[in-house]
């Protein structure tokens, strides 16, 4: 009886057990390393938020008049009686984001439709490479383009005294967020089963009718996620807008007005603020605000994408 179970279980000989336990140790080490890498991502996110929050919190919960913070345009952090109103900066960020999306969404979704539905495989490859390269351009280079090329172009085209304004920054941000809109949008269209296209085609629909009668309704969540990710990209961008907006804290009334954004304010003023004083801390409160906006935008994009997957599995 004992021998039978022994044979069946086939215990490893002492020598083999040695190597296998060593192997197992190695595997365990690698596994925990990988696990660590995974968890560290979460750790970093929380770490960063904690750090930003710690610097901003004393001001957020003591001293800062939140009502004034959000409703006043008076941003004057270095005067004797400092005032911290970010309405102008919010308006700056909002105007640039809205106008850039007005440009980027049609362009990006149009390109996504073209790449996924209309063009030949060869052109598709070429376009995808071009779009990836567009995504890889560093934001400081976009800043240069805004400053050196778009600026004179806008002056020449509109007669405005300066070409650094909402329009300039919006064009730059649009170009920066188009790649993400195109690639996520194309994925969403690609995920629509081919049988839908065939069904519509067999009923006499043209390719364009298939796009707006079948693909848009079928892929609307993925396309919405693409747009939200584009918005996230536009809101968070700093360097390029710092160079493109003209940096004047005001509520714009036309696309040719200069503005200043939340991100650019932090980048421009953090260096001169004294560490630990109110100005410094208010800049971190703005950081928290940006964090929250980015979080909400990304989370909704994520939930929407997950919604699609869930539905497809059902």
């Amino acid at each position: 009886m004992a021998t039978i179970t022994g044979n069946l279980n086939e215990r490893p000989t002492p020598a083999r057990r040695g190597t296998s336990s060593l192997q197992r140790l190695g595997e365990l080490a690698i596994e925990s390393l990988i696990r660590l890498c995974g968890y560290s991502a979460i750790l970093f996110v929380f770490g960063i938020f904690f750090f930003v929050f710690r610097e901003g919190a004393p001001m957020l919960f003591g001293g800062l008049d939140l009502l004034k913070f959000f409703t006043s345009t008076d941003w004057n952090p270095v005067s004797k009686t400092p005032s911290y109103g970010i309405l102008g900066l919010l308006a700056g960020t909002a105007s640039v984001t809205v106008l850039s999306m007005a440009l980027a969404v049609p362009l990006g979704l149009g390109a996504a439709v073209f790449v996924s539905e209309f063009c030949s495989p060869k052109i598709k490859e070429a376009l995808k490479i071009a779009i990836e390269m567009l995504a890889a351009i560093p934001s400081i280079v976009w800043g240069f383009i805004a400053y050196m090329m778009l600026n004179p172009l806008i002056i020449w085209a509109t007669g405005a005294p300066v070409g650094l304004n909402v329009l300039n920054a919006s064009i730059i941000l649009a170009l920066m967020s188009v790649p993400v809109i195109v690639s996520v949008g194309e994925d969403a269209l690609k995920a629509v089963p081919d049988s839908y296209r065939e069904a519509a085609l067999a009923l006499g629909a043209s390719r364009w009718e298939i796009v707006y009668r079948v693909l848009f309704p079928a892929a609307k969540n993925g396309l919405l996620a693409a747009v939200l990710l584009g918005i996230g990209r536009a809101i968070g961008e700093t360097m390029a807008v710092l160079m493109a907006t003209g940096n004047a804290n005001q509520i714009p009334t036309s696309p040719l007005d200069r503005v200043q954004t939340l991100t650019a304010t932090i980048a421009a003023e953090l260096g001169e603020a004294v560490q630990g004083d109110d100005h410094y801390r208010v800049l971190f409160v703005i950081g928290i605000l940006l964090f929250v906006i980015a979080f909400v935008v990304n989370l909704s994009a994520d939930l929407i994408v997950r919604g699609i997957r869930g539905k497809q599995n059902a």
Partner: peptide
Amino acid sequence: FQRPNPLP
């Protein structure tokens, strides 16, 4: 078609 393909 072979597989029913109503539109979504």
